[in-house]
Amino acid sequence: MEQRRAVHVVTGASGGVGRSIAEALLRTGAGVVVVDIRSAGWLDEVADGAVVVGDAGDAAVLSAAIERAREFGELTGWVNNAAVFRDAWLHEAGSEVVLDIVDAILRPTVAGAAAAIGEFVRTGVAGSVVNVSSHQAQRAVRGALSYSVGKAALEGLTRALAVDYGPRGIRTNAVALGST
């Protein structure tokens, strides 16, 4: 039976940590599809990569990323790196603004996990979802309430996905970064 090439989707990878993750995956010989609200111009010259420009929390954008991944081979990994960081004091910004920021942090991860797991279940692939968290999920930083709450929720989501989909061979992990 012919083994298809491993392909990974990395969200929030036009630069920074996401770009480093995508470049590391490319060095392994995998195909990479980047999803970002900005173009990842650095990937234009890479034969094994593609860019889908759009919101990583939008199901249609993620569907397009899966279609691009299928062009390279078989989706085996998904890295949910896309997030926002914006300070908001609860007493000044109010609950709606704080919740909007939490949503902007959590939505791309939930949507990405749903897209990846849906494809893994459809194809029978024992794939992997990696959610990029932060040390702030465990140790809040003054003035970053929304970020701490969003990343703590992301870690709870990661544990729940592991419990729900681990028996199907789908691995779900979180990587909590320090300050970058």
Rank of each mutant, 00 (worst) to 15 (best):
G156C: 10
Q136M: 07
A140T: 01
V163L: 12
R168K: 13
E155I: 07
Y147P: 11
S148R: 01
I170R: 10
A153N: 04
G143F: 06
L154G: 12
G156D: 07
T158G: 06
A153R: 03
S148P: 10
A162L: 12
S146W: 05
A153K: 14
Y165R: 02
L157E: 12
V141P: 08
G169K: 09
A140D: 00
V141A: 13
S146M: 08
Q136L: 15
Y165F: 11
Y147D: 15
A153W: 06
R139P: 15
S146G: 14
S146R: 00
A160P: 01
T158F: 03
I170A: 13
L157H: 02
A153G: 13
S146C: 04
P167F: 07
L157D: 00
A153L: 08
T158M: 01
E155L: 13
L161V: 08
L161W: 09
Q136Y: 06
T158N: 15
A160K: 11
K151E: 10
R168T: 02
Q138F: 12
R139T: 13
L145I: 09
R159F: 11
L161G: 07
A152S: 10
Q138H: 12
S146N: 06
G156T: 09
G169S: 08
L145V: 06
S146V: 05
D164F: 00
A137C: 13
T158Q: 12
G166W: 04
Y165E: 04
A160L: 03
D164N: 05
A144G: 10
Y165C: 02
L154Y: 11
Y147E: 07
R139W: 06
R139M: 01
Y147R: 04
P167L: 06
G166A: 09
A162H: 00
A140H: 00
A140Q: 02
G156S: 15
L145S: 15
T158W: 11
G169R: 07
R168I: 03
I170H: 05
V141H: 11
T158S: 08
G150A: 04
A144I: 06
Q136R: 05
T158K: 02
Y165P: 03
L157G: 01
L161I: 13
I170Q: 04
G156W: 05
V163K: 13
G156K: 10
V141Y: 08
S148D: 09
S148V: 08
A144M: 01
A160W: 11
V163H: 10
A160F: 05
Y165D: 03
V149D: 03
R142D: 14
E155D: 08
K151P: 13
R142L: 09
T158L: 01
R168F: 08
V149R: 10
G143Q: 14
K151N: 09
Y147G: 04
Y165V: 06
